[in-house]
């Protein structure tokens, strides 16, 4: 990908040590099987609060699969079996009494390909709010506006809130999906290659947005774009064929990785 000039921004002060003693998301010995094949192998990982963590690795390495474990979207596929534990805020999300729906309300997700509903822009953002029982028009209006502002989309759509979301450009659609996700105030936002289908300009806007959002949210992002990971994340985890190879601060991963495989990948020798 061609280098693009990034707008000047206040880069966050990167933490130097990996996470505090009690991370927000604690993955322990997690393995995932599709039928008989093991797609994730004994992953252990702790992710901190209000930081951006990037999952990188060549395609098929399991980074998206792991991401989808965090809001149990893998439940929707038949034949998927999970071993080990994954705790959010100390609660095992795969425990018997956990309601996947309740979990997903609190762990939001933005997909690789923008997927606004075939409804109006307003209704797209309001949908999640209504699901959570918000009914009053004035309340809805206020949160929709705030969310759209939060996703840096308000100025572009404020005059056509009630026209179809499918009429927006790709980048706008993706920002709408982000607005939709943040409207219900999740604790964590999962992003699955959110900018891979966008042009460089739209990508830059999304990245800018992610840096703003991390002041309020914990963000986990999957990306195959290493520059992107370097630009926006505080921590980076490198995966290879279902295994976690290395997890450290982004600065360390990209400047001085401790594993040979990581170095080969981030320097572009394979992948």
């Amino acid at each position: 990908m061609a280098e693009i000039t990034m707008p000047k921004m206040n880069l966050p002060g990167t933490a130097t040590t990996v996470s505090a003693s009690a991370p927000l998301i604690a993955i322990e010995n997690l393995s995932l099987y599709y039928g008989a094949s093991k797609a994730l192998k004994n992953i252990s990982l702790g992710l901190g609060e209000k930081v951006v963590t990037a999952f990188i690795g060549p395609s098929g390495c399991g980074k998206s699969t792991l991401l989808r474990c965090l809001n149990r979207m893998n439940d929707l596929i038949d034949n998927v079996r999970i071993e080990g534990s994954c705790k959010i805020g100390g609660h095992d999300i795969y425990a018997k009494d956990v309601d996947a729906i309740e979990l997903r309300k609190r762990v939001g997700m933005v997909f690789q390909k923008s997927n606004p509903f075939p409804k109006s822009i307003y209704e797209n953002v309001a949908y999640g709010l209504r699901l959570h029982g918000m009914k009053a028009k004035s309340e809805l209006d206020a949160v929709v506006e705030k969310s759209l502002r939060g996703a840096a989309l308000w100025d572009e759509v404020k005059d056509r809130l009630h026209s179809s979301a499918l009429g927006l450009s790709g980048g706008q659609q993706q920002r709408l999906c982000i607005a939709r996700a943040i409207a219900i105030r999740p604790e964590i936002i999962l992003m699955d290659e959110p900018a891979s289908a966008l042009d460089p300009l739209a990508t830059a806007r999304i990245e800018e947005l992610i840096l703003e959002l991390k002041k309020e949210f914990t963000i986990v992002i999957v990306t195959h774009n290493m520059q992107q990971a370097a630009r926006i994340s505080d921590y980076t985890a490198f995966f290879y064929i279902g295994e976690l190879i290395e997890f450290d601060t982004t600065a360390k991963i990209f400047t001085n990785p401790s594993k040979r495989q990581t170095e080969d990948y981030v320097t572009g020798r394979f992948g």
């Binding site: 100390g90 009494d97 609190r106």
Partner: peptide, 18 residues
């Protein structure tokens, strides 16, 4: 410009039961 943070102080410690 972000939506109000909920006043809920049990955030992150609440369990995921319905």
């Amino acid at each position: 410009y972000l939506p109000e943070k909920s006043a809920d102080t049990t955030r992150f410690t609440r369990n995921f039961r319905a």
